Simulated scan of single mutants.
Amino acid sequence: MERTFTALTNQAAQVLGVDRNSVAGYDKEVAALLQKLHSVVNSIGELRNRAGADHGPAELPVGLDLRYGRLAMRSAIAWSGFMLDTLHDRRTQTEQ
C-alpha cells in the first residue's frame, strides 16, 4: 500500500465518502469544491517536502515567508476541520 501524503489524504477522503467520485453523482458543485480543497492539501504536502521534512530544522527554508506559512496553515485547518466534522457526522449517523 502506498503511504505518500497524497495517497493517505485520498484514502481518508474515500473512506469518509467525500472524494470527488463519491459526491459527483448528486452534487457536482460540491464535488468540484472538494476536489479543489484536496488539491490545496496536496500542495501543502509538496510545500512541506520542499521546505524540509525535519521538525525544527536548523535553517529556515528559503523563499517561504510568514504569509505563505499562514496560508498553508489556514488551508490545512479548513481541510482538517471539514474531515473531522465529516467523521463526527458519520459516527453519529451509525449510532442512530
Rank of each mutant, 00 (worst) to 15 (best):
R20A: 09
T86G: 02
Y26C: 10
E95C: 07
N42I: 11
A76I: 06
Y26A: 13
Y26G: 14
T9D: 02
D27L: 05
G81C: 09
E29D: 15
T94G: 02
T6M: 07
S80I: 09
D85H: 10
R20H: 10
D19A: 02
S39N: 11
G56Q: 12
G69S: 06
G45H: 09
W79P: 02
V18H: 00
L66I: 12
F82V: 10
F82N: 04
S43P: 05
P57C: 09
T94P: 00
F5T: 07
H88N: 13
A58E: 10
A53S: 14
Y26N: 14
R91H: 15
T92N: 03
L60G: 01
S75Q: 13
I44S: 12
N21I: 04
A24N: 05
A13N: 00
K36I: 11
A32Q: 08
R70K: 12
E29W: 09
A51F: 00
D89P: 00
V23S: 02
D65I: 04
G52A: 01
H38K: 09
R91K: 15
V15I: 09
Y68N: 10
D54E: 15
K36E: 13
Y26E: 13
L84G: 04
K36P: 01
G45F: 02
E46T: 13
Q35L: 11
G45Y: 01
S22D: 01
Q93P: 04
M1P: 07
T94W: 03
D54M: 15
M1Y: 10
V15R: 01
Q96P: 01
Q14P: 01
M83K: 03
D27C: 04
V30Y: 02
A78G: 07
E59R: 08
D89E: 13
G45N: 09
G69D: 06
H88F: 13
R48L: 12
A78M: 09
V62S: 04
M73Q: 14
V40W: 14
L37C: 07
Q14G: 13
A31E: 06
A78V: 12
Y68F: 10
M83L: 14
A13P: 00
Q11E: 05
L47C: 08
I77R: 15
W79V: 15
Y68M: 12
S22R: 00
N21Q: 12
R70Q: 11
L16G: 05
A12N: 12
N49V: 06
L8D: 08
E46N: 15
Y68S: 07
V41C: 05
M1F: 07
A53I: 15
L66A: 15
Y68K: 07
L34S: 06
S75F: 08
